[in-house]
Amino acid sequence: MIFNKRSQMAATHKRPATLAELRNGEEGILDRLDLPDDIARRLMELGFLPGNAIIPARTAPGGGARVFRVDGSEIALRDDTAARLFMRLHFPSIKAATP
């Protein structure tokens, strides 16, 4: 399911980078969640909303999952889930990143 109408058009000419491709400490702005409804909803409740800033904070020991700083808290996701969260490529109006 896609949660941002504007980005649907953007997706046609260029494939946006995903959250999984973001390096630790690098900030990105979420564009859309390409996941089943219930998981997408839970992620949005946890702060993974289109337009929000996300920073991968650290990799789990052994890999496979990472901890992300989003909307004032830290949430762990597996890499395959992060790969379904698409990021904005250009963000002229960055929303203030949450600490």
Binding site: L43, I75, A76, R78, D80, T81
Partner: peptide, 10 residues
């Protein structure tokens, strides 16, 4: 199916 893992680190 491979399940998802979403967990808050308090």
């Amino acid at each position: 199916q491979r399940s998802s893992f979403i967990l808050e680190m308090p």
